[in-house]
């Protein structure tokens, strides 16, 4: 005990203080994980702005809470961000600790896609230019292709987690649910019973698949693509809350929303699905496309490929980037 105390004291004495390194400029947001602040480096050679993510101290225990180390989500986010380096992934500059709390110093991005969508949907009330949509989509796919090439599933892609700098560069953020999926020691569904926010959740997840693949991230990108074109979520359901249940409830309304647009998945379209009543309304997605701001046939084709029911048949990020939609005018910026 004494040796441990002495070690900690030595370490504490050596540690620079967060406030000596960074000037906190303001509060950005908070969530279950903790809080995010905007900050500036006190290093005169560094004029960059940063987002400081301060994690809450975790607790566990039946009788009274005791400190339980860093959360699985903080652990994932830090472990993964520490390895990744890509223009379209939120960069982690360093990690600091102070008084048993952990701070991630992330690059700062002014906006997120949720803000962009809300601004155009409510204030402007006019569609996003196709050039903008295509540029966001291409960069999003570019970042996702990098994650997938590194055997990482994001598992929580949604507009709020996709950041955009003032220069229009897309940064995929919040890797708190992300994980490496190569050679898992346990089936993916054993670790986390619910992944992806319900509106962006792929049908195989909604139908309770034990094993799933990177196709779940593509589904979410498909939903975001549609949302960029129409300024409203493509599959917007009322989520069934857990309400103390041990197992996640069936998200009936979300499945209905998807079927309204895509038709009922048939065995022919999705051989893995055998328990669902046979139904087919292939024309439905055509009707939906008429409400989209884009009139591009290629755009429709890409959306269809991303929202393919069968995860085995769903397009990959790499393939999507090569889709003719991106060859058509207007061509995406940043390519």
């Amino acid at each position: 005990m004494e040796l441990t105390r002495a070690y900690k004291a030595r370490r504490d004495a050596r540690r620079p203080r967060l406030v000596d390194r960074y000037e906190i400029l303001g509060f950005i947001s908070s969530g279950t994980y903790g809080r995010v602040y905007k900050a500036r480096s006190r290093d005169s050679d560094d004029d960059g702005e940063y987002a400081i993510k301060a994690f809450k101290v975790e607790k566990e225990g039946e009788s009274g809470l005791v400190a339980a180390g860093i959360s699985q989500s903080a652990c994932r986010e830090i472990a993964l961000c520490r390895e990744l380096s890509h223009i379209n992934i939120m960069a982690l500059r360093e990690v600091l600790t102070e008084n048993h709390a952990i701070y991630m110093i992330l690059e700062y991005a002014e906006h997120d896609l949720l803000q962009v969508l809300q601004y155009h949907g409510h204030e402007e009330r006019k569609p996003l230019p196709e050039l903008t949509v295509k540029s966001f989509l291409w960069q999003l796919l570019n970042g996702l292709a990098y994650l997938h090439a590194n055997w990482i599933l994001h598992r929580d892609l949604k507009p709020a987690n996709i950041l955009v700098t003032t220069k229009g560069v897309v940064k995929i953020g919040d890797l708190g649910l992300a994980r490496v999926y190569r050679q898992p020691l346990l089936p993916l569904a054993d670790g986390d019973r619910v992944v992806v926010t319900v509106w962006y959740r792929a049908p195989e997840l909604l139908l309770g698949a034990k094993h799933y693949t990177k196709a779940i991230d593509i589904w979410a990108v498909g939903c975001i693509f549609a949302e960029l074109l129409t300024l409203r979520p493509i599959f917007k359901s009322e989520e069934v809350k857990m309400d103390g249940r041990k197992t996640p409830p069936f998200q009936r309304h979300q499945v209905v929303k998807i079927i309204e647009v895509l038709g009922t998945p048939t065995v022919a379209r999705w051989p893995g699905v055998v328990d669902l009543p046979e139904y087919s309304n292939l024309a439905a997605i055509r009707d939906y496309w008429k409400t989209c701001s884009s009139k591009s046939e290629q755009g429709f084709d890409l959306l269809r490929l991303m929202l393919e029911y069968d995860p085995e048949r769903r397009i990959s990020a790499d393939q999507a980037m090569d889709h003719p939609y991106f060859q058509e005018e207007p061509k995406p910026a940043f390519k």
Binding site: T4, G69, I78, E83, V95, V180
Partner: peptide, 18 residues
């Protein structure tokens, strides 16, 4: 105690875990 030491361990590793 261990929860606390986990943070020191992470710091010693400069938060590289994978």
């Amino acid at each position: 105690d261990i929860a606390e030491l986990e943070i020191y361990l992470l710091e010693e590793m400069d938060f590289y875990m994978i």
